[in-house]
């Protein structure tokens, strides 16, 4: 089962603190590897906290990542959020369309639920 979403990577407070505490520390790593999903989308896709999904971009970049429910109404349905880091970078294309800036927010991704297939 797959569905299209728009991914918004961004800064979070914990991710910012993690930069100072060390990028190889657990806090930072946890922040940048948790995909936030709107509670409504979680329910509709029957996703539980910690379940895994696969994200694929139109250019073929692909990651697998664990999900967590976004807080209250922070995220509208159809949007995904992840803190800047290795995962979000993997989903950016190399092309900057002549701007120097890769499209790093508002990325179209195909979401595939993996659930119990991955530990």
């Amino acid at each position: 089962m797959t569905e299209m979403f728009i991914l918004i990577p961004g800064r979070t407070s914990d991710q910012g603190c993690g930069i100072s505490e060390g990028k190889f520390q657990e806090k930072y790593q946890k922040q940048i590897t948790s995909l936030q999903v709107a509670p409504g989308d979680m329910e509709r896709l029957a996703l539980a906290e910690g379940d895994w999904v696969r994200l694929t971009t139109e250019f073929g970049q692909q990651v697998e990542v664990a999900v967590t429910a976004a807080k209250k109404d922070e995220l509208p349905e159809g949007l995904l959020f992840i803190a800047y880091g290795d995962i979000s970078s993997r989903l950016m294309g190399g092309d900057t369309h002549g701007s120097g800036m890769p499209t790093s927010k508002g990325i179209d991704v195909e979401l595939e639920v993996l659930r119990s297939e991955t530990a």
């Binding site: 190399g94 900057t96 369309h97 002549g98 701007s99 120097g100 800036m101 890769p102």
Partner: peptide, 9 residues
């Protein structure tokens, strides 16, 4: 020239 001499590129 952004897009040409920028590091991502």
């Amino acid at each position: 020239n952004p897009g040409e001499y920028t590091t991502s590129d």
